[in-house]
């Protein structure tokens, strides 16, 4: 494996019964880069994210976070080692306030999982970090609103914020802009650019403006295989990609 990689996939395979969803993916993410994963519907992008984050087990292959092998570990261990993810379908705590949602996300980083002998309010560091995160997500005025009562794009911001609260080195965002209007998307791109600074970002997104504007490198996944990896310009001019994916849309 490559010692400089932030995240490294080696021969990753996944099959459900006799159907191969992921057919041997090798990929290295450079620390600090913003890397997009694109591909037609059903290519296996979300499945790949599930495999990396520990939600699904691999059929074959290995995943490394830095030097640490993370394939085979449960999601909470993977998260604790420094990889966080957001979900395509908003996945927050609907009946809790925005503040409480973020505090639960921040709290874990302070080793406060099973603590029952101390009031959470006394951990001022947790409260401060939660407030800071609220500010950065521009949700400060919604702190006491229930997550279920937020607008859709606010929920998406919260979703991203919860992934980032654990101060991960690597962040996986699964279609963060899905279902957003043009303005909301622009706003979310700004937000992502801002709060993932210094982290390695791996993002699945269908909005090509976002993908080509935001990423340093792009990988194209088709039928469970990566057919190309490169800078946005390289990808734009790659004939295989044009044929397999972009061609369908530009035609």
């Amino acid at each position: 494996m490559n010692a400089q990689s932030a995240l490294s996939l080696r021969g990753v395979r996944k099959s459900f019964g006799s159907i191969d969803i992921i057919n041997g993916v090798d990929l290295d993410l450079v620390p600090g880069e913003r890397h997009a994963l694109i591909g037609p519907n059903g290519a296996g992008k979300s499945t790949l994210f599930h495999l990396i984050s520990g939600q699904l087990g691999l059929s074959a292959g290995e995943v490394f976070l830095g030097n640490q092998k993370i394939s085979g570990l449960p999601p909470d261990r993977v998260n604790h080692l420094g990889l966080a993810r957001s979900f395509q379908i908003t996945n927050v705590f609907p009946g809790l306030s925005v503040f409480e949602n973020l505090r639960l996300a921040v709290m874990r980083q302070h080793g406060l999982q099973y603590v029952f002998w101390q009031s959470i309010a006394r951990r001022t560091q947790v409260t401060r970090e939660t407030r800071e995160l609220l500010e950065r997500l521009r949700l400060a005025n919604r702190a006491s609103t229930l997550a279920s009562e937020l607008s859709y794009s606010e929920q998406r911001s919260l979703e991203i914020g919860m992934a980032l609260a654990s101060r991960p080195q690597v962040v996986l965002l699964d279609e963060p802009m899905a279902g957003m209007s043009r303005e909301e998307t622009d706003y979310a791109v700004d937000l992502i650019r801002d709060i993932t600074r210094g982290k390695t970002l791996f993002i699945v997104e269908h909005d090509m403006d976002v993908v080509f504007g935001l990423s340093d490198r792009i990988s194209v996944l088709v039928y469970g295989r990566i057919v190309a990896t490169g800078t946005p310009d390289e990808i734009r001019s790659n004939p295989v990609v044009k044929e397999a994916y972009l061609g369908e849309e530009t035609a």
Partner: peptide, 20 residues
């Protein structure tokens, strides 16, 4: 307490809790 807050998370969304 923190565990008391986590209890609310258990009610609301265990999957999210796991990924946190």
């Amino acid at each position: 307490t923190p565990l008391g807050r986590v209890a609310l998370g258990l009610r609301e969304n265990t999957r999210r809790l796991r990924f946190l």
